[in-house]
């Protein structure tokens, strides 16, 4: 398989995951607003912080209000991580890998792009936002379903898998980090009610609410949530599950030694969740370390399989 094709497949999966995650996040915040009594000031701007996009946001907008944040996250083409930008990248990459993907994938991606571009205003205005975002999430799942149901589990599939799981693992650490940050802010008042809202929100953002209840059999509690999202071996968005998936994914790829090592390193870094201390700075430090590890992992993938370095005849 061509290095370039492998790279494009990897990015298709990453960007597609990003489209779905973004739609999901905005959707969760949207419904959260209806649940909270007025005195809670949940800020839409958290979503910008979550994506480490403060600098870019500040250069474009003055007000941190809902409209600007949602516009920035969904529609802004100067934001390379916005939903439309990511979708555009999916489309461009599918367009240039049509020869290795199922024929219908191009049609589906095309349909989804057309739908998203045409109806983007519905996402920005509050009234039809829910329906719009639901359709986007459905579209992503339709594409993933097609790929899962029809693709050979050859190298092409494995690169899609690597991209999807790396992006997912990254998002999970970000959501947990956002939870910990909100918790720290809230601790000033040590209001347990905030903790419930904050961590419930983290679960919902990862579509983990029901699985969490069934697995952990407990009410929403910060450490249980962190444990579930970090370590559950069966939940497909848990950090552990994503790393395991990537370990399986590289099994049959050529020259996989460096990637294997990088992945196992990440499993070895553990965070002690049993202590009595609440999740605080140390937890954030741990998450930060795993995000750096994910960045390094991407570099390893890049150097092993994608880099267009001029190699002599081997």
């Amino acid at each position: 398989m061509l290095s370039k094709v492998a790279e494009r497949l990897y990015w298709i999966a990453r960007h597609l995951e990003r489209v779905e995650n973004t739609a999901r996040l905005v959707s969760v915040y949207d419904s959260l607003l209806f649940d909270l009594p007025g005195e809670f000031d949940i800020s839409w701007y958290n979503l910008v912080t979550l994506n480490s996009a403060e600098k870019l946001f500040e250069s474009r907008y003055k007000n941190h209000d809902e409209r600007n944040v949602v516009k920035f996250l969904l529609a802004d083409d100067t934001n390379p991580s916005s939903m439309l930008s990511a979708l555009k990248m999916v489309r461009e990459n599918v367009r240039t890998t049509r020869d290795v993907l199922p024929q219908e994938s191009w049609e589906m991606v095309n349909e989804l792009s057309i739908y998203a571009t045409k109806n983007i205003q519905q996402g920005i205005n509050r009234s039809a936002r829910h329906e719009f975002l639901t359709n986007i999430i459905k579209g992503c799942q339709q594409i993933n379903g097609l790929l899962t149901g029809t693709m050979c589990r050859d190298a092409s599939w494995q690169f899609l898998r690597l991209g999807r799981n790396l992006e997912r693992a990254d998002m999970t650490t970000r959501l947990l980090d956002a939870g910990a940050a909100a918790q720290l802010e809230g601790e000033v008042e040590t209001d347990m009610h905030i903790s419930q809202v904050v961590w419930g929100n983290v679960l919902r953002s990862s579509s983990a609410e029901l699985s969490y209840r069934r697995t952990m059999r407990s009410a929403v509690h910060e450490k249980d949530v962190a444990e579930f999202l970090l370590e559950d071996p069966d939940f497909p968005r848990s950090f552990r599950f994503c790393i395991d998936s990537m370990i399986n994914g590289i099994k049959n790829l050529p020259n996989n030694a460096a990637a294997k090592k990088a992945l196992h390193t990440m499993l070895e870094v553990e965070f002690e969740l049993d202590s009595d201390k609440r999740l605080g700075f140390e937890f954030r430090e741990y998450l930060n370390q795993q995000q750096v590890n994910l960045g390094n992992l991407h570099q390893v993938f890049n150097q092993t399989w994608f880099a267009m370095l001029k190699r002599g005849t081997e």
């Binding site: 061509l2 290095s3 370039k4 020869d99 290795v100 190298a155």
Partner: peptide, 29 residues
């Protein structure tokens, strides 16, 4: 796609010292 062959650009190919053409793949040349 219809022929089941690779679609390459110039940057995917390299000519070796043996004057043969190689493509850059995930497993090497």
């Amino acid at each position: 796609q219809q022929m089941g062959t690779e679609l390459v650009e110039g940057s995917d190919l390299v000519v070796g010292d043996d004057d043969c053409v190689y493509m850059r793949t995930i497993a090497g040349l």
